[in-house]
Amino acid sequence: MEKKFKRTLITTALPYANGPVHIGHLAGVYVPADIYARYLRLCGKDVVLVGGSDEHGVPITIKARREGVTPQDIVDRYHKIIKDSFEELGISFDVYSRTTSDTHSATASEFFRRLYDKGEFIENTSMQLYDEEAGQFLADRYVVGKCPHCGNERAYGDQCEACGTSLNATDLIEPKSAITGSVPVMRETKHWYLPLDKWEPALREWILEGHKEWKTNVYGQCKSWLDMGLQPRAVSRDLDWGIPVPVEGAEGKVLYVWFDAPIGYISNTKELLPDTWANYWKDPETRIINFIGKDNIVFHCIVFPAMLMAYGDGFQLPDNVPANEFLNLEGD
């Protein structure tokens, strides 16, 4: 028998604030989420639809550098464009905020600090690509090269957008700096890692045994990741744009955008409901549904749930993650 819930929290993937939303975003995430929220409201259900702009990460710094402005200028411009677009399209968000808000910064910092204090991170020194011409370490998106899986010549250091494979910058063939075009060298740097392998048994039980009803593309991609074996994943980056890592000895380092961004669902709920937000995140009688695109499956079904498991304190995992496929136009 299907479980009955007291309330539903619907989250939508946070659109990246370096460009306007397009038809793929709308068809894949926001219109379906809006239809479902409206349906539940018509049924008299307690439902909250949460959205917001994702405003940290390397693509924003790249765009700012190209235009000769600050990253804040970029996100201010596109957050307004995106928010106005949703309002004009009638998407019925209960809250649409942003990851540069004070509430989000405090929430993400506290989240990292709790995991740090609990000993949930691995502190690791590793070799990372460094652009000698620019005088800085290269975050994943500052590295471009050939995908080792499909041969795409324009793969990024975190993901190939042709085949969807998640990558590390050092996986790329013939990597180059996206800043100067020069060939980077390897230098030593320290970062904090979330040991996804520690949470693999719990994730396997939660997904493969507990959610066989999930869409085939979601379940299949999760099973593929779990069958390959999960590895620790860095949650910090050498960058000057983002939420500073809130521990001593972390100068010049910020929270990795994929650690920071999903916490935006929590901070945006806090912004809307400062006194009762926990009812939507920590009550087993709340159903949480994440509407996303295919490229975000691993983060919503593997990384963010592992973060919530590590945090503890009653945080609930999503009941469903309905991810849609890519819309291909002219072979791209």
Rank of each mutant, 00 (worst) to 15 (best):
L9D: 03
L9P: 04
I10P: 00
L14E: 01
A17T: 06
I23Y: 04
L26P: 02
L42R: 14
S53N: 09
G57P: 03
I60N: 01
E67K: 10
V69N: 01
Q72R: 15
R77G: 00
F86K: 00
G90C: 07
D94V: 14
V95H: 03
S97Q: 08
T99K: 04
T103S: 15
R114P: 00
R114K: 12
Y116H: 04
T125D: 08
L129V: 07
F137Y: 10
F137W: 03
L138P: 04
A139I: 06
R141V: 09
R141C: 11
C147K: 11
H149W: 10
R154A: 14
A155L: 10
A155H: 01
Y156P: 02
G164C: 00
N168T: 12
D171K: 09
L172W: 06
V185F: 07
W192A: 15
P195S: 14
E200M: 11
A202Q: 14
L203M: 06
K212C: 01
G220S: 13
C222D: 05
P232C: 02
V235D: 06
L239F: 04
G249T: 11
K253C: 10
Y256N: 02
W258N: 08
W258A: 07
W258C: 11
F259H: 10
I266E: 05
D275A: 00
D275W: 03
K282M: 11
K294M: 13
F299E: 12
D313M: 07
G314A: 10
Q316R: 12
